[in-house]
Design a protein around this nucleic acid. Structure first.
Length: 107
DNA sequence: TTTCTGACAACAA
DNA sequence: ATTGTTGCCAGAA
């Protein structure tokens, strides 16, 4: 489509590459793509692809480790359930010891 | 077309 | 430290 498709596509590529049991943040992805304040765009892209099971969007959280996007998944705690299933501990919708699970984007 | 909003995060006061 | 505003880009009304 357009050049912007690059941003769109790269976000998807990064999210797809998040390994099992790891997570990353919106800001980190945005910063990797060159726009450190473009974090909202990352969420926007995922919102478009939220129906795509190939995109482990549950592994993307905000910088506090808070599961801000859980409301976009089915049910009330599907996102938390998926993360806990990968061995990530979550308390009060927030990942415990985020840095321990944090994964850095790389293509 | 203009305006507002959105899975966030940084900056200003 | 806390609160409010700004930046990012695209889509919806």
């Amino acid at each position: 489509m357009t050049e912007k498709n690059n941003f769109y596509t790269e976000v998807l590529e990064i999210v797809k590459q998040i390994p099992y049991g790891k997570v990353t943040t919106y800001g980190r992805i945005a910063q990797y793509l060159g726009s450190k304040r473009g974090a909202r765009m990352v969420g926007w892209v995922l919102n478009k692809q939220k129906g795509n099971i190939e995109i482990p969007a549950h592994r993307v959280v905000n910088r506090k480790g808070l599961l801000t996007g859980k409301m976009h998944f089915e049910g009330t705690d599907l996102m938390q359930n998926l993360l806990e299933n990968e061995g990530i501990k979550i308390v009060d919708n927030q990942i415990v010891d985020l840095e321990n699970y944090l994964w850095e984007p790389k293509i």
